[in-house]
Structures are given as C-alpha cells and as structure tokens.
Design a protein around this nucleic acid. Structure first.
Lengths: 193, 193
DNA sequence: ACCTGAACACCGTTCAAGT
DNA sequence: ACCTGAACACCGTTCAAGT
C-alpha cells in the first residue's frame, strides 16, 4: 500500500533524473557517479536506490523521459497536410540543441552506452521508433508532392540518419549550422556518380 | 638509460593496447577495468602503469594506433588521378568494419569519451584531420571531373560526416549496407526542396 | 629499468535503523 | 513507505620490494 501518491513518487523520480541529466551533461555517463547525483540532488544514496533499482535503470528513465522529441511539434503540420521538406523538419528537430536544454553530447553518451547495455539499447530503439513514426506523418505530404516515386520509409530512414549524424558531428567536432551540414552531405552525394 | 630497446618498449605498449582494444570491443570503454586488461594481457597492474601513465593515456594510444585508416589505401588512387566517387571511397573506408577487425561500436565509445575528455578529443581531432587529408587527395580527381563547381573541402567534410553517421547508425541500430545507407541519405536530400 | 602484487582512496550497491 | 548514512565488495592508481 503506497503511503505517498503515485504522482509524488513520479515527481521524485523526475527530480533525481534531472539531477542525473545535469551531471551527465557535465561529466558524461561513465564518469557520473552516484555520489555526484547525491550532491546534485541534495538527497542520499538510499533515496536514489529506493526510487531506481540501479544506475542502469536510472539511465533508461533518463532516455525515456528526456531524449525523445516533442512529437506533436513535428507531427501537427503533417496531419494538416502542410508540405515540409526534410530540411525544414531537421531544422525543427535539431533546434532542441540550439535552445540548449540538452547538449548533443548527451545522446552520444547514451548511444555509446547502449552499444554495450542491451536494456538501454532497447529503450533507445523505442525512442528512435517513436521519432520515426512522427517523422513519417510529418514528411508524407512532401514525399507525395515532390518525390512521389520515393519510398516514404526510405526518406524517413534518411532523415533519422541525418539527424543522428548531425548530433555526433556536432558533439565530436563542435558547433555547426544544420544547413551547412546538409549542404556538405548533398555535395558528397550527387544523384549519380 | 633504457635497459631495453625502444622498440621492445613499444612492442609491450602495443601488446597492452591490443588487450585493451579486445576488452573495449566486448564491454565498452567505461566498463573496461584495469583488472580486465590485466586478465586479457596476462600482465600485472604495475606493468600497465609502468607503460602508460593512466587509463586515459592508454585510451589515447589506442586511438592513435588503431582508429586511423590505412592512408595509402585511400590516397593512392587519387595520386594516380583515378576518378573515384565519394560512394566508392566510403565503401573502401568503411569496409574495415566488414572485415571486422574493429567493430563500429569502438569508434562510438571513443567519440562519447572524447566529449568529456579534452585530451582524448585532441587525439581524435588529429585522427580525423589525417583521414580528411587523405580523402582530399583521393576525391580531388572526381570533383574536378564531375563536380567542378563544388568546393573540394565541402565534399571532403560531407564524406567525413557520412562515414561518421554510418558508423553510429550501424553501432546503434545494427548492420546495414553502406549503399542502402547512402541511398536513404540521398532520398532525404534532393538537390532542391 | 621494468615488473609484481599488496595497499589505498573511491565507486556502486545494500541494509539496519530512523521517521 | 520512504529515507538516512555507515558498511561492503570492487575500481583506478601507487609503491615497496623483487629481478
């Protein structure tokens, strides 16, 4: 029988996860210690372990709650039939990193960790599948209007990969305009060789 | 005065680094412990620390020695004036991962670590700069012959980013043919919107 | 000079005791 | 029921003692 309400418990989990996110931003996932999160949250080690079974579950929670994108923002125009090009959609998606709530280094940390942690990888796959579903709705009008012979899913995979590539590129090599990045990709990929 | 020759010392460093590389491949960089490397190498903790100042320096050594590409293999054709498209060059570069000496998860581990370790980042920047220099030589004939109006450096940046994107994509989402990947990128990036 | 392996400070996690 | 903080097993690194 819970003594506190479920929403109180959820609020505390989010409080801990946000403290963890700030630490990860600063030190990376591997170098963020429970002691760091204790300090940042002002709670105790026990408090963290009574809300999460371990560090790995806390990491999965961070992915599920802070690494998605605001779906509606991407989907809405598509539902209304608005024609938005992949370029525009990428601009919208990646603007999250300019508003700098989360630095591109954060997803990179989680991708690297997912490569050796199947549970985290599953959580990330779920997140990526959700983003792909939103993109599919968003880009459908453009494909219908401008590239009717293209496979919609291939375009969606392309956008997903471009977003992923941009994030890593920026995290590893420093800030870069989305448009400049896309121009460089286009320059290296002419329609025919 | 060194009692052993410099080349003996270098051989031992490489021996340790190769053991570390096998561990990283298996467990990721963060989860590879010195004890793991001790086990894998058959040496002692002290032996590792008498050859590297710490784990970070060992990581930098691994980058410098195993994360480059065989430059000659990429450059040679370009020097001879052979016209090779970005697509062909990417195929050559990325074939390293098919021959599976190193899995794409390995560079991803190092990129993530570099985001929070300036020393490692510097080493990676050096590696990327070297690869870019090779690519510049390799792709110059193609740019001259097929895309004379394109900026050569922009094409090189594009190829670098495509390679980086492919590596992350494959490490996170599983195996994928280079050509399929490039087709998806091209589908999302028409010459004009 | 280089190596061994025990020792040290710190990490993730647990758990008795509090509220 | 949830939290505190001391305790435990294990991590990266050091260093006296060996060759």
């Amino acid at each position: 029988m819970p003594r506190v309400t479920e929403s109180y418990r959820e609020a505390r989990r989010e409080e801990i996860a946000l403290a963890a996110l700030r630490c990860i931003e600063r030190s990376g996932l591997g170098d963020t210690t429970i002691a760091d999160i204790v300090r940042e949250s002002g709670l105790s080690a026990g408090a963290i372990y009574s809300n999460f079974t371990n560090k790995a579950e806390l990491a999965r929670y961070v992915v599920a709650h802070f690494l998605g994108v605001r779906r509606t923002r991407i989907e809405d125009g598509g539902r209304r039939g608005e024609v938005r090009s992949p370029r525009e959609l990428l601009g919208t998606m990646l603007s999250t990193f300019r508003e700098s709530v989360i630095s591109p280094a954060v997803p990179l940390q989680f991708w690297a960790a997912a490569a050796v942690d199947p549970g985290l990888r599953e959580e990330l796959d779920r997140t990526i599948a959700e983003i792909s579903a939103s993109l599919r709705i968003a880009v459908a009008p453009w494909v219908a209007a401008r590239q009717p012979d293209r496979d919609l899913d291939e375009v969606v995979r392309g956008i997903t990969a471009l977003a992923q590539g941009y994030i890593v590129h920026v995290a590893v090599l420093g800030p870069r305009e989305v448009d400049d990045y896309l121009d460089a990709m286009a320059a290296a990929l002419p329609e025919r060789d």
